[in-house]
């Protein structure tokens, strides 16, 4: 995969590079020749009407689907063949459109399990309780508590994740994704189902995450949130890339307007 190596001498500024990505579902092109790249440290909005292929794109970046053609490079490395669980270790984390917390576990445990790729203790360490395992467990707990504080969820630490109100579950998903210490965080409709107050809080959280140096991709239908948060917006429509640019450029783009509002 020499083609995907970064050019020597020039530091890789792009954390994610997608080239001509294509995915077929039974003859239907869910993704057609999509190309774009994301620079380190920015928030990239990904918008488009329902069925445009936003979630499919997320699923390919996170290794859940294998693309039929094209390439995806993360930090200069080709990741098309990397299994999903290894990509998390490499630094790609995500949240889901529909909240998928582990509902029979407490919130704290959800965060702890989110640290899976950054911790080591295995079977024998757990059974023998070696000091290294105990130390790791203590550190994990401390880090989990920090994350809960960061996301404003401290009060719910010991509640069952499934019992939390919907808005808090959405935030908890982000906290769990952050627990894996990602370099790139993909948020799939984090504001769906949130009330305006919660959406405002979410915006603040996204900014805090950005300040901590994590690159984000944001799929969202709440346009004001996307336009406010994003440094760059990619627009998909029917599996094709329609436009790419700053929020300002996108808002003025006629093709985008007609895709959203119809041609009438």
């Amino acid at each position: 995969m020499t083609q995907s190596e970064p050019t020597p001498g020039i530091p890789a500024k792009q954390i994610l590079d997608v080239q001509n990505l294509t995915k077929m579902f039974g003859g239907v092109k869910a993704q057609d020749q999509i190309s774009f790249s994301i620079e380190k440290g920015i928030v990239c909005g990904l918008i488009g009407p329902n069925g445009a292929g936003k979630t499919t794109l997320f699923n390919m970046i996170t290794g859940i689907y294998q693309p039929d053609a094209g390439k995806v490079a993360f930090n200069g490395k080709d990741i098309r063949k990397t299994p999903a669980h290894r990509l998390v270790k490499a630094g790609i984390a995500r949240t889901f459109q529909h909240v998928e917390l582990f509902s029979s576990m407490t919130l704290l445990e959800n965060i702890l399990v989110g640290m899976h790729v950054r911790t080591q203790a295995g079977f024998w360490a757990a059974v023998t309780r070696i000091p290294a395992m105990k130390r790791e467990e203590r550190q994990s707990r401390r880090r989990a508590e920090e994350l809960l504080e960061f996301t404003g969820l401290c009060a719910d630490a010991h509640k069952m994740a499934g019992d939390l109100p919907a808005g808090r579950q959405k935030t908890a998903q982000i906290a769990r994704a952050l627990a894996s210490e990602p370099l790139l965080l993909l948020l799939d409709e984090p504001a769906a189902g949130l009330n305006p107050v919660e959406t405002h809080a979410l915006g603040k959280l996204i900014q805090k995450i950005k300040q901590s140096g994590i690159t984000m991709m944001l799929v969202e239908h709440d346009m004001s949130l996307v336009m406010e948060m994003s440094d760059k917006v990619v627009v998909l429509d029917q599996g094709k890339k329609l436009a790419e640019g700053t929020p300002r450029q996108i808002q003025r783009n006629e093709a985008v307007m007609s895709a959203y509002l119809g041609n009438g």
């Binding site: 669980h85 998390v88 995500r94 998928e100 582990f102 576990m105 899976h116 790729v117 894996s180």
Partner: peptide
């Protein structure tokens, strides 16, 4: 326990 609650999600968080 994460696998029990949701195997696909468990994969997605790196297990």
């Amino acid at each position: 326990r994460a696998i029990h609650d949701g195997e696909k999600t468990a994969v997605a968080i790196g297990i």
